[in-house]
Each structure stands twice: as structure tokens, then as C-alpha cells.
Simulated assay, not measured.
Amino acid sequence: MKREQTIASLGTLVQLRSLAVDRLQADLASQEATRVRYQNNLARMDALATGSGASGALPPALALNCGAYKQNVLAMAQLHRTDLALHEANMAVAQRKLSEAWTERELLGKVLEQQEVELAKEQDRIVRKREDDIATQSWMANRTA
């Protein structure tokens, strides 16, 4: 009875770990989508900065305006790159947590499997002993008759 309770508890733990792994995978997928958005935004900002043309060929007022525009776009792109680097660091932490949770789930799964095998062996031994006892009783009954 105790082994069955252990197996039930391990089964519950494996299910909980599986849910945690699923949650972490979903979180990592969301973070990956955010990373892609950052990269797409950076590509657009770079295109905006290079697409504004050379400011030196423009009249002084327009050149000043174009230069300020490029400087602001490049500054915003740099802030975006910093945010992306921080986000990627958070993704690395999330990936490590996912890996640890997956490993823990797998280990618990193996322990559960071992416990189930041991229970099956134990139950098989009980059945064989009962069959042996019945066979012995039958043999003894036939011998005395």
C-alpha cells in the first residue's frame, strides 16, 4: 500500500513538473517573440537613419534638422540595443530555468518508472507465491487421497 501511495505522489509530482516545464516553454516563446520585435525595430531604426540621406548636401537649416533627426534615431536605437541585450540576458536565465525544470521532471519520471517496475515485480511475486501455495495444497491433497 505504501509503494502505491509513493507512486501516486510521484505521479502527481511529475504532472506538476510537466506543467511547470510547459509554463516555462510558453514564457520562453513569448520572450523569443519580444526579441524578434526588438530586432525588427532595430532594423527599421537603422533604415530610418541611413534613409534620411547625407545631411551635408542640404541647406544649413535642413542639415541641422536632418542631423538632429539622425542623432535622435541613433540614440533611440542604442537604447533599444541595450534593452535587447538585457532581454537576451533574461532569456538566458529563463532557458537555464527551463533546462533545470526539464531535467528535474525527467529524473522524477525515471524514479516513478522504477517504482512502478518494483511494484509490478512485487505484485508478480505475490501472485506467484499464491499460485505456488495453491499448487502445493493441491499436490498435498492428491497425495493423501
Rank of each mutant, 00 (worst) to 15 (best):
L107A: 11
D46S: 08
G67N: 09
G67Q: 11
V127L: 15
Q5F: 04
P59Q: 09
A57I: 09
L119R: 01
E122K: 09
Q95A: 10
E131C: 15
Q95G: 04
A94Q: 01
S138M: 14
T12Y: 03
R105G: 08
G53F: 12
A33N: 12
D124E: 10
K70T: 02
T50Y: 14
A8P: 04
Q25L: 09
R143C: 04
Q5M: 07
L64N: 07
T34G: 04
A75Q: 13
E131F: 14
Q78H: 11
E122Q: 10
V21L: 09
K70D: 01
H87W: 00
L62R: 06
H80Q: 08
Q15W: 00
N142D: 12
T50S: 15
N142L: 15
S138Q: 13
L107T: 03
A68N: 10
H80N: 03
T12V: 05
L108Q: 05
M1N: 13
A77I: 05
G56H: 00
L74V: 13
A54P: 09
L108S: 06
K121D: 07
A33R: 09
E116K: 15
L48F: 08
D46N: 03
R143K: 14
P59L: 06
S99Y: 08
A94H: 03
A94L: 02
L19M: 03
T34D: 12
M91R: 02
A29I: 05
A29L: 11
A20R: 04
D27I: 02
T82P: 01
S99E: 13
G51H: 08
